[in-house]
Design a protein around this nucleic acid. Structure first.
Lengths: 336, 336
DNA sequence: TTGTAGGCGTTATCAA
DNA sequence: TTGATAACGCCTACAA
């Protein structure tokens, strides 16, 4: 039922070859013919069939992103903003964005990637929430599939990436807290195999070190990047005989959980305890009190990642393959 | 380079026909042969090429969802949960999920849909954030493309949908507030062309009516479903000479904005003012105080929508084409 | 129970 | 400058 190139050709009494080339802008077709072709194609509402084109050209003009859905009922404002950035930039370049979901680390995640790679479903991949050693990097590099990551891993492969300098960011934050007079500063992180954990935690340690403070193991807790996790971790911290006066969190959701825990215990955040997060999600502006955080421009990062990936796919050389951005410290009332 | 069905056939010294049918589960292939085929295909890592399959079968095995990104930097927990539900159910059925973004109502939205429809990019569409009269419904119905909506419109077309009975929900809520002694109840809604606004606002009016209360125009404000919008609307309401004692909000984000406005004005939410939302997003559990809301199970709804759509695509008859769910009133501290 | 062959809509090669 | 033709990888009548 849809209009094919053959229909257009017949109407014009031309060969499909000529029509194809006229539309693709080859220069070996008479200008006059081209105009007629374009005109008629438009009139007839002709749009090339993607599948046929893909089959013939051996590329999909589609990029893939697999959502790391840590929980079944999963809701993280980071991702809606990230996807929105990906979607906008991809559309701008006339590509498609294919999305799937998979629990990180599970076998299903591996299956999803394998199916897409083997089926040549997309031309390139966008990865985030990287592990320090990430089989996805190894796998895609080995399969010779273009991909770009948000956050870097320790894997040896050569791939373009964007990362936020969490280390420097957290160090600045710790520095600030120390200047505010804090001595007992806690850190709520995440699984140690996550790239952001390595990055941000090392910033925390360095910050303490430069301030001449000792790292107290009881003040360091591993959590899971969720609000609920932050809540539980904070309950542990605050029930210590000598609780911290400040808490640095690996992300905003965790910090929001900590604020809740503190409030539930009757503490006044900022007077009794300082709390800070990382990400700069919108929610962080609206906690009570508003949350001090290190902001990363997620939407813009997502768009930039797509640009990198498209260049990589097309084999265009990149001026910068490893972009590092500095997070911006946003001081709000939660740290006094 | 990738493994094709031909490679598998050659290795097995069988025809590609037999391999194809063995893998597709036809019953006219010897059980013994089938086992060998499956075995070898697995070993060789064979995955059917999507494009070839699509071209041959004239369907994409892909469904499309166009994110209504109301703001450029857009972050709404509703959507990450919704997408996660779509992704999971789609994957389970071996379909793909294609995503794009478009500002509602803009010409770009129209262009995005048209491009996908003309290019036969997807087999069916998922729509939400419906307008009362929605050109998308008219257009897709006219083009004879399968689609399913979340929330219904007034358009005459016949299409499957899931909707939440916001009217009944809000009515119950108003009823509850009245029983709590509230007489001056405000409503913060959204643009009147949105389906959810019509639905929920009518519940509000009915609730008042049944309680014998008069609708006060000054207590009804149009906002934009965002936290910021809720904040501004609440500032207006609370600066009235005779401010409301309770505020019903069209969604949780709005309500969270209202809580913030109230706190900033030094009001104690629940003692000085009651506030309720709609959606049941995770954030609503963690406001201070926790937010009373009408819960809709977004993740499950998303999965259900995919099921409806796949049935529609395959032409399977549906027992229920118009599913209506009741929201669940979750009473929390924000309403005393 | 298995194999042969045609074609889905494009693009690319080669010839006219 | 244009056209005939052969793939791309798969599925499916139809034949054997």
């Amino acid at each position: 039922m849809p209009v094919t190139i053959r229909d257009v050709a017949e109407r014009l009494k031309l060969s499909i070859t000529t029509v194809s080339r006229a539309l693709d802008g080859y220069d070996d077709v008479a200008e006059d013919t081209r105009q007629r072709v374009i005109q008629v194609a438009l009139e007839m509402g002709y749009v090339p069939n993607r599948a046929a084109r893909q089959l013939r050209k051996q590329r999909t003009e589609t990029i893939g992103y697999i959502l790391p859905t840590s929980t079944p009922r999963f809701s993280d404002p980071f991702f809606s903003e990230f996807i929105s950035g990906l979607g906008d930039e991809v559309a701008k370049n006339n590509y498609d964005l294919l999305i799937s979901t998979a629990e990180p680390g599970e076998d299903t995640e591996r299956l999803v990637y394998q199916r897409w790679v083997h089926g040549h479903r997309v031309d390139g991949y966008i990865l985030n929430r990287m592990r320090l050693r990430d089989w996805r990097v190894q796998y895609l590099a080995q399969m010779n599939v273009p991909f770009v990551t948000f956050e870097r891993t320790l894997d040896a492969a050569d791939y373009p990436s964007i990362e936020i300098n969490g280390q420097a960011g957290i160090k600045t934050l710790v520095d600030y807290l120390v200047k505010q007079g804090h001595q007992r500063i806690a850190y709520i992180g995440a699984s140690s195999d996550l790239a952001i954990q390595a990055d941000r935690y090392s910033g925390f340690r360095q910050g303490l070190h430069e301030a001449g403070l000792l790292l107290q193991q009881e003040l360091v807790i591993e959590s899971d990047l969720t609000r609920q996790g932050g809540l539980r971790a904070a309950q542990k911290l605050l029930s210590l005989s000598n609780p911290p006066t400040a808490v640095v969190c690996i992300n905003d959701l965790t910090a929001i959980g900590v604020i809740q825990a503190a409030s539930e215990l009757g503490l006044l955040v900022s007077r009794d305890i300082a709390i800070a997060g990382f990400d700069g999600i919108e929610d962080a502006e609206h906690t009570q009190p508003p949350l001090t955080t290190l902001n990363q421009p997620i939407y813009e990062i997502a768009r930039e990642i797509v640009k990198l990936l498209l260049a990589e796919i097309k084999g265009e050389p990149l001026a910068e393959r490893h972009i590092q951005l500095q997070p911006e410290l946003i001081l709000r009332a939660s740290t006094g």
